[in-house]
């Protein structure tokens, strides 16, 4: 696939804080790429630099082989779906969606036709005359997407577009967005702090941390072959097991208990919780390391204080670069 967008050694500093520390990224035509990271990792700044709403201190941005580093936002063939939607409160749904085309001086009848198509695409027929404050969160979301997509940008930037929606609606919108992206064949750069969302939707994920990309790869690579302890602990439930100076990532669902062949570690159950069909058991090994297992089914039930043996298959442990720092914080919710 051909390259559509490239970031080259992007640096950005705000008030003495270096937010981006030299970022390189190449995005292919038609790709769905997600920038995944905790709050403050620089993902939104990256997006704003691509949109032109922020200028990079150093580095270059290329779109379709053209240097757009210094270009004003309105000249860039890139559109954004903002986190808070940023719909114009003084315009109707129709006027909001047609805004970009009106600016380009497209004929009224043409705009009307296109807006109707868009409304159909995002399933909002009949909402033409409504104002943003008369819409639900999910509907506003759709308008924001339609308003950006109608301009047929080369790249669509989405800044946590589903962040404000409840879980159920979010799952539904994830599927719809993915479908829309395939249907339009448009390049999406998507921002989220939700690893599940990233894995569900993306062709590739770029895990960001403190202004750098920690690892860029397909969801499978990120999940099964994490390169660092941070990536392993950020994506999915992974244990970082340390032994003789090396660190290994072991997925919680791959931790086995008693009776299974590879159980070689003495352990004590220290915590147990039941989370919607899934049992979470925390063990403490004799050397004090804690390991979490996610198991299903009543057989897996153990009581706190019980001493058992645990282990994992050799192929379940992936050696990772130990950063002595794992991702513990709850994911931000805004």
């Amino acid at each position: 696939m051909s390259e559509i967008l490239r970031l080259e050694k992007i640096h950005k500093t705000f008030d003495d804080t270096e937010v981006l520390k030299g970022i390189d990224l190449s995005v292919a035509q038609g790709e769905f790429i997600t920038l995944l990271g905790a709050s403050g990792c620089g993902k939104t700044t990256t997006l704003r630099i691509i949109a032109g709403l922020e200028m990079a201190d150093e580095g270059k941005v290329w779109l379709d082989g053209r240097d757009i580093t210094e270009m004003v936002p309105n000249k860039r063939n890139v559109n954004t779906v903002f986190q808070n939607y940023a719909l114009f409160p003084h315009m109707s749904v129709e006027e909001n969606i047609g805004y970009g085309m009106r600016l380009r001086g497209v004929a009224k009848s043409e705009i009307k036709e296109q807006v109707e198509q868009m409304l159909q695409l995002v399933q909002l027929e009949g909402f033409e005359k409504r104002r943003p404050d008369q819409l639900s969160g999910g509907q506003r979301q759709r308008v924001a997407i339609a308003r950006a997509v109608i301009n047929q940008p080369r790249v669509l930037l989405l800044d946590e577009p589903l962040g404000a929606l409840d879980l159920k609606l979010r799952r539904q919108m994830q599927l719809e967005l993915k479908k829309l992206q395939k249907q339009l064949g448009m390049t999406f750069i998507y921002i989220t702090h939700d690893q599940e969302e990233a894995i569900n939707m993306s062709d590739r994920i770029a895990v960001m941390r403190e202004g750098r990309f920690e690892q860029i790869g397909t969801p499978n690579e990120i999940y099964y072959e994490p390169k660092t302890s941070y990536v392993a602990s950020f994506v999915g439930d992974a244990n970082i097991y340390r032994e003789s100076g090396k660190a290994y990532a072991v997925r919680a669902e791959n931790v086995l208990m008693d009776g299974e062949a590879v159980c070689i570690h003495e352990a004590k159950v220290v915590e147990k919780s039941f989370a919607g069909g899934q049992l979470r058991i925390v063990f403490e090994l004799t050397d004090g390391q804690r390991i979490t297992a996610n198991r299903y089914g009543i057989d897996a039930d153990r009581s706190v204080g019980e001493e058992i043996k645990i282990g994992w298959k050799p192929e379940a442990a992936v050696e990772v670069a130990d950063e002595k720092e794992e991702y513990h914080g709850e994911t931000e919710s805004r």
Partner: peptide, 10 residues
Amino acid sequence: RLVEASRDLG
């Protein structure tokens, strides 16, 4: 952010 959105849309 509304002004930014408008710039973004052209």
